[in-house]
Write a protein that binds this DNA or RNA. Structure first.
Length: 270
DNA sequence: CCGCCGCCCTGCTTGC
DNA sequence: TGCAAGCAGGGCGGCG
Protein backbone atom coordinates (compact mmCIF):
# COMPACT_ATOMS: atom_id res chain seq x y z
CA UNK A 1 0.00 0.00 0.00
CA UNK A 2 1.66 3.19 -1.02
CA UNK A 3 1.52 5.60 1.92
CA UNK A 4 3.55 8.76 2.41
CA UNK A 5 7.04 7.14 2.41
CA UNK A 6 6.25 5.01 -0.64
CA UNK A 7 4.76 7.90 -2.61
CA UNK A 8 7.74 10.08 -1.60
CA UNK A 9 10.10 7.41 -2.97
CA UNK A 10 8.11 7.11 -6.19
CA UNK A 11 8.05 10.91 -6.60
CA UNK A 12 11.81 11.24 -6.16
CA UNK A 13 12.37 8.54 -8.76
CA UNK A 14 9.92 10.11 -11.17
CA UNK A 15 11.42 13.58 -10.71
CA UNK A 16 14.79 12.14 -11.64
CA UNK A 17 13.46 10.27 -14.67
CA UNK A 18 10.70 12.31 -16.32
CA UNK A 19 11.16 16.03 -15.54
CA UNK A 20 11.85 17.79 -18.84
CA UNK A 21 10.13 15.10 -20.91
CA UNK A 22 7.42 16.08 -23.41
CA UNK A 23 4.27 13.97 -23.77
CA UNK A 24 3.93 12.69 -27.33
CA UNK A 25 1.39 9.85 -26.96
CA UNK A 26 -1.27 8.81 -24.47
CA UNK A 27 -3.08 5.55 -24.19
CA UNK A 28 -6.02 5.09 -21.83
CA UNK A 29 -7.25 1.50 -21.78
CA UNK A 30 -9.60 1.81 -18.77
CA UNK A 31 -11.67 4.99 -19.03
CA UNK A 32 -12.72 5.39 -15.40
CA UNK A 33 -9.08 5.51 -14.24
CA UNK A 34 -8.34 8.74 -16.14
CA UNK A 35 -10.48 11.60 -14.83
CA UNK A 36 -10.73 15.09 -16.35
CA UNK A 37 -12.95 18.13 -15.69
CA UNK A 38 -16.19 18.28 -17.68
CA UNK A 39 -15.62 19.35 -21.26
CA UNK A 40 -11.93 18.46 -21.26
CA UNK A 41 -10.59 15.43 -23.06
CA UNK A 42 -7.95 13.75 -20.90
CA UNK A 43 -5.87 12.41 -23.72
CA UNK A 44 -6.05 15.39 -26.09
CA UNK A 45 -5.33 17.90 -23.33
CA UNK A 46 -2.02 16.29 -22.41
CA UNK A 47 -0.38 15.93 -25.81
CA UNK A 48 2.55 18.35 -26.10
CA UNK A 49 2.69 19.08 -22.36
CA UNK A 50 6.13 19.14 -20.76
CA UNK A 51 6.77 17.65 -17.32
CA UNK A 52 7.81 20.62 -15.17
CA UNK A 53 8.09 18.91 -11.78
CA UNK A 54 6.90 15.96 -9.71
CA UNK A 55 5.83 16.42 -6.10
CA UNK A 56 3.84 14.77 -3.33
CA UNK A 57 0.87 15.81 -1.19
CA UNK A 58 -0.23 13.23 1.37
CA UNK A 59 -0.45 9.96 -0.54
CA UNK A 60 -0.96 11.71 -3.87
CA UNK A 61 1.69 11.96 -6.58
CA UNK A 62 1.47 15.31 -8.39
CA UNK A 63 2.94 15.56 -11.88
CA UNK A 64 3.19 19.27 -12.66
CA UNK A 65 2.94 20.29 -16.30
CA UNK A 66 4.37 23.34 -18.05
CA UNK A 67 0.90 24.82 -18.66
CA UNK A 68 0.19 24.84 -14.94
CA UNK A 69 -2.07 21.84 -15.20
CA UNK A 70 -1.39 18.86 -12.96
CA UNK A 71 -1.81 15.12 -13.11
CA UNK A 72 -2.81 14.09 -9.60
CA UNK A 73 -2.50 10.36 -9.05
CA UNK A 74 -3.91 8.32 -6.21
CA UNK A 75 -2.43 4.81 -6.05
CA UNK A 76 -4.72 3.35 -3.37
CA UNK A 77 -3.54 -0.19 -2.56
CA UNK A 78 -2.16 -1.69 -5.74
CA UNK A 79 -1.44 1.29 -7.99
CA UNK A 80 2.02 1.67 -9.50
CA UNK A 81 3.77 4.43 -11.44
CA UNK A 82 6.67 2.90 -13.33
CA UNK A 83 8.98 4.45 -15.93
CA UNK A 84 9.75 2.20 -18.89
CA UNK A 85 12.33 2.62 -21.62
CA UNK A 86 11.40 2.43 -25.29
CA UNK A 87 12.22 -1.26 -25.72
CA UNK A 88 10.58 -2.45 -22.49
CA UNK A 89 7.58 -4.81 -22.62
CA UNK A 90 4.18 -3.43 -21.58
CA UNK A 91 3.84 -3.34 -17.79
CA UNK A 92 1.11 -5.64 -16.39
CA UNK A 93 -2.28 -4.06 -15.56
CA UNK A 94 -1.39 -0.72 -17.17
CA UNK A 95 -4.52 1.37 -17.68
CA UNK A 96 -2.90 4.69 -18.60
CA UNK A 97 0.39 5.11 -20.40
CA UNK A 98 2.14 8.38 -21.26
CA UNK A 99 4.63 8.15 -24.14
CA UNK A 100 7.38 10.76 -24.17
CA UNK A 101 9.30 12.23 -27.12
CA UNK A 102 12.44 10.47 -25.86
CA UNK A 103 10.72 7.12 -26.32
CA UNK A 104 10.44 6.50 -22.57
CA UNK A 105 6.99 5.79 -21.13
CA UNK A 106 5.23 6.26 -17.82
CA UNK A 107 2.89 3.39 -16.96
CA UNK A 108 0.05 3.73 -14.44
CA UNK A 109 -0.67 0.16 -13.43
CA UNK A 110 -3.55 -0.70 -11.09
CA UNK A 111 -4.70 -4.28 -10.47
CA UNK A 112 -7.77 -3.45 -8.38
CA UNK A 113 -8.79 -0.46 -10.48
CA UNK A 114 -9.31 1.71 -7.37
CA UNK A 115 -6.60 4.26 -8.18
CA UNK A 116 -7.20 7.38 -10.25
CA UNK A 117 -5.14 9.70 -12.44
CA UNK A 118 -6.87 13.05 -12.39
CA UNK A 119 -6.22 16.02 -14.67
CA UNK A 120 -6.43 19.23 -12.62
CA UNK A 121 -6.76 22.71 -14.14
CA UNK A 122 -4.17 25.41 -13.25
CA UNK A 123 -6.24 27.22 -10.61
CA UNK A 124 -8.41 24.31 -9.57
CA UNK A 125 -8.28 23.50 -5.84
CA UNK A 126 -7.92 19.75 -5.45
CA UNK A 127 -6.41 19.24 -1.98
CA UNK A 128 -8.58 21.51 0.15
CA UNK A 129 -9.78 18.59 2.26
CA UNK A 130 -6.29 17.25 2.97
CA UNK A 131 -4.76 17.77 6.39
CA UNK A 132 -1.32 18.88 7.50
CA UNK A 133 1.85 17.39 6.02
CA UNK A 134 3.46 15.48 8.90
CA UNK A 135 7.03 16.12 7.74
CA UNK A 136 6.72 19.91 7.68
CA UNK A 137 7.10 22.54 10.42
CA UNK A 138 3.33 23.04 10.32
CA UNK A 139 2.89 19.67 12.04
CA UNK A 140 3.52 20.74 15.62
CA UNK A 141 2.71 18.76 18.78
CA UNK A 142 0.26 21.53 19.70
CA UNK A 143 -1.60 21.24 16.40
CA UNK A 144 -1.71 17.47 16.79
CA UNK A 145 -3.01 17.79 20.34
CA UNK A 146 -5.83 20.07 19.20
CA UNK A 147 -6.89 17.49 16.60
CA UNK A 148 -7.49 14.90 19.33
CA UNK A 149 -9.37 17.04 21.81
CA UNK A 150 -12.97 15.97 22.33
CA UNK A 151 -12.75 13.17 19.78
CA UNK A 152 -14.21 9.81 20.76
CA UNK A 153 -12.81 8.12 17.63
CA UNK A 154 -10.16 5.48 18.32
CA UNK A 155 -6.75 7.12 17.91
CA UNK A 156 -5.77 4.76 15.10
CA UNK A 157 -8.90 5.59 13.09
CA UNK A 158 -8.09 9.29 13.54
CA UNK A 159 -4.53 8.75 12.28
CA UNK A 160 -5.98 7.27 9.08
CA UNK A 161 -8.25 10.30 8.51
CA UNK A 162 -6.53 12.20 5.69
CA UNK A 163 -8.37 15.41 6.62
CA UNK A 164 -6.30 15.63 9.83
CA UNK A 165 -2.82 14.43 8.97
CA UNK A 166 -2.14 13.62 5.32
CA UNK A 167 -0.21 10.53 4.27
CA UNK A 168 -0.51 8.05 7.14
CA UNK A 169 -1.96 4.68 6.13
CA UNK A 170 -2.52 1.40 7.91
CA UNK A 171 1.13 0.34 8.15
CA UNK A 172 2.52 3.54 9.64
CA UNK A 173 -0.47 4.11 11.92
CA UNK A 174 0.20 0.70 13.52
CA UNK A 175 3.96 1.27 13.66
CA UNK A 176 3.73 4.79 15.15
CA UNK A 177 1.30 3.62 17.87
CA UNK A 178 3.63 0.78 18.81
CA UNK A 179 6.61 3.12 18.92
CA UNK A 180 4.66 5.52 21.16
CA UNK A 181 3.41 2.59 23.33
CA UNK A 182 -0.25 3.55 22.82
CA UNK A 183 -3.17 1.15 22.31
CA UNK A 184 -4.79 1.69 18.88
CA UNK A 185 -8.33 1.57 20.30
CA UNK A 186 -7.91 4.36 22.85
CA UNK A 187 -10.46 7.15 22.23
CA UNK A 188 -8.38 10.04 20.89
CA UNK A 189 -9.48 12.41 23.65
CA UNK A 190 -8.12 10.11 26.38
CA UNK A 191 -4.51 10.55 25.29
CA UNK A 192 -2.53 12.58 27.82
CA UNK A 193 -0.34 15.44 26.66
CA UNK A 194 2.86 13.35 27.10
CA UNK A 195 1.30 10.45 25.17
CA UNK A 196 0.26 12.80 22.38
CA UNK A 197 3.80 14.16 22.22
CA UNK A 198 5.25 10.66 22.05
CA UNK A 199 2.86 9.80 19.23
CA UNK A 200 3.67 12.99 17.34
CA UNK A 201 7.36 12.20 17.60
CA UNK A 202 6.78 8.56 16.63
CA UNK A 203 4.83 9.53 13.49
CA UNK A 204 7.62 11.81 12.28
CA UNK A 205 10.28 9.26 13.20
CA UNK A 206 8.69 6.24 11.54
CA UNK A 207 7.93 8.17 8.34
CA UNK A 208 11.52 9.45 8.15
CA UNK A 209 12.95 5.99 8.74
CA UNK A 210 10.65 4.43 6.13
CA UNK A 211 11.64 7.03 3.52
CA UNK A 212 15.29 6.27 4.28
CA UNK A 213 14.57 2.62 3.48
CA UNK A 214 12.65 3.54 0.31
CA UNK A 215 9.28 2.42 1.70
CA UNK A 216 7.62 -0.84 2.74
CA UNK A 217 6.94 -3.66 0.27
CA UNK A 218 4.67 -6.11 2.08
CA UNK A 219 2.38 -6.60 -0.85
CA UNK A 220 2.40 -4.71 -4.14
CA UNK A 221 4.45 -1.58 -3.65
CA UNK A 222 7.33 -0.88 -6.01
CA UNK A 223 9.08 2.42 -6.80
CA UNK A 224 9.30 4.28 -10.14
CA UNK A 225 11.92 1.80 -11.33
CA UNK A 226 9.80 -1.20 -10.36
CA UNK A 227 12.00 -2.01 -7.33
CA UNK A 228 10.85 -3.06 -3.86
CA UNK A 229 11.49 -1.00 -0.73
CA UNK A 230 13.28 -2.21 2.41
CA UNK A 231 11.26 -1.11 5.44
CA UNK A 232 9.28 -4.39 5.59
CA UNK A 233 12.35 -5.76 7.42
CA UNK A 234 12.04 -3.07 10.10
CA UNK A 235 8.34 -3.46 10.95
CA UNK A 236 7.66 -3.95 14.65
CA UNK A 237 3.98 -4.92 14.58
CA UNK A 238 2.35 -4.66 11.14
CA UNK A 239 1.59 -8.17 9.85
CA UNK A 240 3.39 -9.78 12.81
CA UNK A 241 0.44 -11.47 14.56
CA UNK A 242 1.57 -14.45 16.65
CA UNK A 243 5.16 -13.25 16.80
CA UNK A 244 6.82 -11.84 19.93
CA UNK A 245 6.86 -8.10 20.59
CA UNK A 246 10.36 -6.78 19.93
CA UNK A 247 10.12 -4.67 23.09
CA UNK A 248 8.39 -6.82 25.73
CA UNK A 249 8.09 -10.30 24.22
CA UNK A 250 4.28 -10.57 24.46
CA UNK A 251 2.56 -12.02 21.39
CA UNK A 252 1.46 -9.46 18.79
CA UNK A 253 -2.29 -9.59 18.11
CA UNK A 254 -4.45 -8.58 15.18
CA UNK A 255 -7.80 -6.92 15.79
CA UNK A 256 -10.15 -4.96 13.56
CA UNK A 257 -10.64 -1.22 14.01
CA UNK A 258 -12.63 0.92 11.60
CA UNK A 259 -12.96 -2.14 9.34
CA UNK A 260 -9.17 -2.38 9.07
CA UNK A 261 -6.66 -4.91 10.30
CA UNK A 262 -4.78 -3.54 13.29
CA UNK A 263 -1.62 -5.08 14.79
CA UNK A 264 -0.42 -4.24 18.27
CA UNK A 265 1.06 -5.50 21.52
CA UNK A 266 -1.21 -5.88 24.55
CA UNK A 267 1.86 -5.98 26.80
CA UNK A 268 3.46 -2.59 26.26
CA UNK A 269 0.86 -0.52 24.37
CA UNK A 270 -1.50 1.16 26.84
C1' DC B 1 -19.20 18.66 12.45
C1' DC B 2 -19.15 13.88 13.82
C1' DG B 3 -19.42 8.95 13.45
C1' DC B 4 -20.64 5.06 10.85
C1' DC B 5 -21.49 2.15 6.81
C1' DG B 6 -21.41 0.29 2.16
C1' DC B 7 -19.38 0.37 -2.24
C1' DC B 8 -15.77 -0.15 -5.57
C1' DC B 9 -12.54 -4.45 -7.64
C1' DT B 10 -9.43 -8.42 -8.27
C1' DG B 11 -5.98 -11.73 -6.70
C1' DC B 12 -4.92 -14.47 -3.07
C1' DT B 13 -6.16 -17.48 0.86
C1' DT B 14 -9.20 -20.51 3.10
C1' DG B 15 -12.35 -24.31 3.65
C1' DC B 16 -15.04 -28.05 2.23
C1' DT C 1 -7.68 -31.89 -6.19
C1' DG C 2 -10.82 -28.36 -7.53
C1' DC C 3 -13.76 -24.90 -6.91
C1' DA C 4 -16.40 -21.29 -4.59
C1' DA C 5 -16.64 -18.21 -0.99
C1' DG C 6 -14.33 -14.97 1.88
C1' DC C 7 -11.11 -11.42 2.61
C1' DA C 8 -8.32 -7.16 2.09
C1' DG C 9 -8.44 -2.03 1.82
C1' DG C 10 -8.28 4.10 0.68
C1' DG C 11 -11.34 7.25 -0.55
C1' DC C 12 -15.87 8.76 -1.28
C1' DG C 13 -20.72 9.51 -0.93
C1' DG C 14 -24.77 8.89 1.84
C1' DC C 15 -27.19 8.72 6.21
C1' DG C 16 -28.62 10.06 10.85
Amino acid sequence: MPELPEVETIVRGLAHKIVGETIARISVTLKKIAVAPKGINFERALIGEKIADVSRRGKYCVIELSSGRKLVTSLRMTGRLVVLESGDAPYPYTHVELGFESGNRLAFSEVRQFGRMRLVEPNEAWDGELGVEPLTKAFTPERFLSMLSGRTTPIKVLLLDQRRVAGIGNIYACEALWEARIRPDRPARTLTAPATRRLHEAIVDVLHRAIQMRGTSVDDYVDAEGLKGGFQNSLAVYGRSGKPCLRCGRTIVRTVLGQRGTWWCGGCQR
